[in-house]
């Protein structure tokens, strides 16, 4: 019973675990991407760069100021969110009135600039980040070793996803957001400060990306290219899931992470392109995505 389809169970379980971790990162990032798209009508190409920024801020807090993982996990998203808020207010906002392609190109440029800047200052090589001592151990399940930090990542990522879902579907602020996605000028005519709401949304979603980066720091090394690789997969996730539902986006992200992990076991060479192949299949069968509505 230690082999499943000729693969050692420990390897299989390990890859599924890794897939779940990646999947929860995909879920956190594509969630933010989808909310930004719904509210601002902007495809945020800088999302990967903000994820990278979250990782780097956490790393810098630790290396330069000696601020550890736990405060870093709180401070990094706040800093990233503030940067997002400022850039939305000063720059992005002026592009809502022109063709959507321009805001896309703008965030694309921002992604290039951020990645280029960090590569210039810190070099391309990854920077290791230590696991927090509290989560350094793990459990031996007999067939595999389960590192505590990875369990923590999955649990907290799912909790944050759930919290975001709850905030949007069940609170008053969430009702403003949903209504503003449908008809922003009417919501504003009811007395809600919609421009501020947009800034808040962008800051929150970008902060979510920063949070993901901070979570990822101890698992993957922190490097300037870490965002770009993820970003394109996130796009595929969003195309596959469609932007219609929050739960759909979260589930698609998780599922794709696991599927990707499984291909690493059975077809290692195909693992990098699995997500894209799934995307092509979904596009052929359901052009609007699995949970999508045409907009």
């Amino acid at each position: 019973m230690t082999e499943i389809f000729g693969v050692p169970a420990a390897v299989l379980a390990g890859q599924i675990l890794l897939g779940l971790i990646n999947g929860s990162f995909y879920a956190l990032l594509s969630l933010g991407l989808a909310i930004i798209f719904g509210m601002l009508n902007v495809i945020n190409f800088a999302h990967g760069a903000f994820y990278m920024l979250g990782g780097f801020v956490t790393w810098m807090l630790f290396s330069y100021l000696g601020i550890g993982y736990w405060p870093g996990l709180l401070i990094a998203p706040v800093i990233v969110g503030l940067i997002g808020a400022v850039s939305e207010r000063l720059l992005l906002r002026h592009l809502y009135r022109v063709d959507h392609l321009y805001s896309l190109l703008f965030t694309f440029g921002a992604a290039l600039a951020l990645e280029g800047l960090f590569r210039y200052v810190f070099g391309a090589a990854g920077k290791p980040y230590p696991q927090p001592a509290e989560l350094s151990g793990g459990y031996n399940l007999g067939f595999m070793f389960l590192p505590l930090y990875r369990i923590w990542v999955i649990v907290i990522a799912l909790a944050v996803c759930f919290g975001t879902w709850y905030a949007i579907e069940r609170t008053r602020l969430g009702a403003y957001l949903r209504a503003a996605t449908e008809n922003p000028s009417l919501v504003q005519a009811f007395g809600v400060n919609v421009p501020f709401l947009l800034t808040l949304t962008y800051a929150f979603c970008v902060g979510l990306a920063g949070f993901t980066g901070a979570l990822a720091a101890p698992i993957y090394q922190v490097s300037p290219g870490m965002g770009a690789n993820f970003l394109i997969i996130i796009f595929a996730v969003v195309v596959i899931g469609g932007m219609g539902s929050i739960v759909g986006t979260i589930l698609t992200g998780l599922a794709l992470g696991v599927v990707e992990g499984l291909t690493k076991v059975f077809f290692p060479t195909a693992s990098a392109i699995t997500v894209f192949i799934i995307m092509i299949l979904v596009l052929m069968v359901r052009p609007n995505g699995l949970f999508g509505r045409e907009r």
Partner: peptide, 20 residues
């Protein structure tokens, strides 16, 4: 700005009702 107008006590019931 548009969101300050309702705060004067002006309410708007738009055409086609604007139910979300």
């Amino acid at each position: 700005p548009a969101h300050k107008v309702p705060r004067l006590g002006i309410g708007y019931v738009p055409e086609e009702r604007g139910i979300f």
